[in-house]
Design a protein around this nucleic acid. Sequence first.
DNA 1: CCCACTTATAGCACAAGTGCTATAAATATT
DNA 2: AATATTTATAGCACTTGTGCTATAAGTGGG
Lengths: 89, 89
Amino acid sequence: MKKRGTGRKKRRLIFDRKGIEAFAIRLKEVRKKTGISQSQLAFEAGISLSQVARIETARINPTLSTVFAVARALNVSISELFLFNLPTE
Amino acid sequence: MKKRGTGRKKRRLIFDRKGIEAFAIRLKEVRKKTGISQSQLAFEAGISLSQVARIETARINPTLSTVFAVARALNVSISELFLFNLPTE
DNA sequence: CCCACTTATAGCACAAGTGCTATAAATATT
DNA sequence: AATATTTATAGCACTTGTGCTATAAGTGGG
């Protein structure tokens, strides 16, 4: 008996764990290289500190706007932030 | 008199309109180059058609997972999808 | 051992992304 | 022109990203 409500089809959202993890690693790497703290990055990017931490620990699936803000704050191009091999899902 | 509830500070989310628009243009460009329809792209990427349309018309701020899925479906690297100058916000 | 700083978690409230479905509008094709 | 295909909108329900605040855990200096 696994009726979900009234025969509602289950929506499957995507959460690309591997990709998100790869990005997390890359971001931390770039941030470290510029020598700033998560807190400073958050301030510069205009996002919250908790959000930076959540991204670097791959807990969330950030939006493009957030990524753009981070790239600007780190003074790197978007391409540079994605210099890693996107793992096959 | 513009009290919002009980003195709650307004949270400001970011929505990088210019960046999102630049990405929309770039995506449409890459998709066209591969000669597939929004519908096909959606299917290949495992996302909904409405989502592809919303992205290409810059109506939403997609997540990284969505972008990753699209890149895989188009057989391009993430960097390639971001081959445009990120406009200053 | 303290202390300051940094990073990681947690919970709440709210805003927004996403899937799904349906439909309209625009664009090709015959 | 008529038809088919593609693209754009819209609304709903559900899920999740985000800010904010607080707190714990890790780290390095003195």
